[in-house]
């Protein structure tokens, strides 16, 4: 199976370790992974700002890079969701194919590869931030608003395979952190307040690390933690799933 690795622009530029961990994780579970070198961005920064009509170039570039893979996998629920919902192209057949074959990392591991064992160790108290686009857009976990059973969470299912990890329960298990793309600067006051409240929920439960499936949310919370000189760190879930002592 040929897997195309889609690394969102801000991970490429600011969090290369998350991309490296994702690549290693996929190779470890037996995938043949390629990273198309001409990839850039999913176009979401423009689209969520009301400028979806400016994303044609990004879309065409995305299709050029990823049309030929069996699966496209990305360590971001948000960018995956954007492609799934909004990728269109002059080659619409290729775009439709990509929309149906793109997966966020954890859902790819649980739903396509049925991963049931991981050789990883991370002996810390960890809080999972359920990023909204992964949660409510891709249904990575049961949503607190809906009356559905039984409960499930794809990221938790994977984190439970990690040796030594202690996952804490949050008071509000799937409240938004307030990153929200350009919202984080256009609505700075509310964005930061939401972030502080999310971080406080994790801190109340004594975490060492906050993890999640979206680096954007983690970057926002990391920014708040750092400003407060907190010892608590953020790690993308791929880094924990590949962690060794």
């Amino acid at each position: 199976m040929k897997v195309g690795l889609f690394i969102p622009c801000y991970i490429d530029q600011f969090y290369p370790n998350v991309a490296i961990a994702t690549l290693k994780l996929l190779e470890k579970v037996g995938c043949e992974v390629a990273y198309p070198l001409q990839q850039t961005c999913c176009g979401q920064p423009m689209a969520n700002s009301g400028f979806e009509h400016l994303t044609g170039g990004c879309n065409e570039n995305f299709v050029r890079n990823f049309a030929d893979f069996d699966y496209i996998v990305s360590p971001s629920g948000s960018c995956t969701l954007h492609i799934k919902h909004h990728l269109h192209s002059t080659n619409e057949e290729a775009a439709t194919g990509i929309r149906s074959r793109i997966y966020e990392l954890t859902e790819f591991l649980t739903d396509v590869l049925n991963v049931t064992a991981l050789d990883a160790t991370f002996p810390y108290k960890v809080g999972l931030h359920q990023s909204c686009h992964g949660q409510r857009g891709l249904h990575l976990a049961q949503m607190s608003e809906l009356v559905v059973s039984p409960p499930f969470s794809k990221p938790v299912q994977l984190l439970n395979l990690v040796n030594g990890i202690e996952l804490i329960q949050l008071d509000r298990r799937d409240e938004c952190c307030g990153f929200g793309g350009t919202f984080c600067v256009t609505e700075e006051a509310v964005s930061v307040k939401m972030g502080k409240d999310r971080v406080a929920d994790h801190l109340r439960h004594g975490v060492n690390y906050i993890t999640g499936v979206d680096v954007s949310c983690l970057m926002h919370m990391e920014g708040i933690l750092k400003r407060a000189n907190s010892a608590v760190k953020v790690k993308h879930i791929a880094e924990i799933l590949t962690a060794t002592l």
Binding site: I7, I11, D12, Q13, F14, Y15, P16, N17, A19, I20, L23, Y35, L37, E188, V192, G195, K196, M219, H220, E222, G223, I224, K226, R227
Partner: peptide, 18 residues
């Protein structure tokens, strides 16, 4: 105003991969 940005890494993932 109320947040730090991440430390910029030495190289992008693209460069690391290459």
């Amino acid at each position: 105003n109320q947040r730090e940005m991440p430390e910029p890494p030495a190289e992008s993932f693209h460069d690391w991969y290459v």
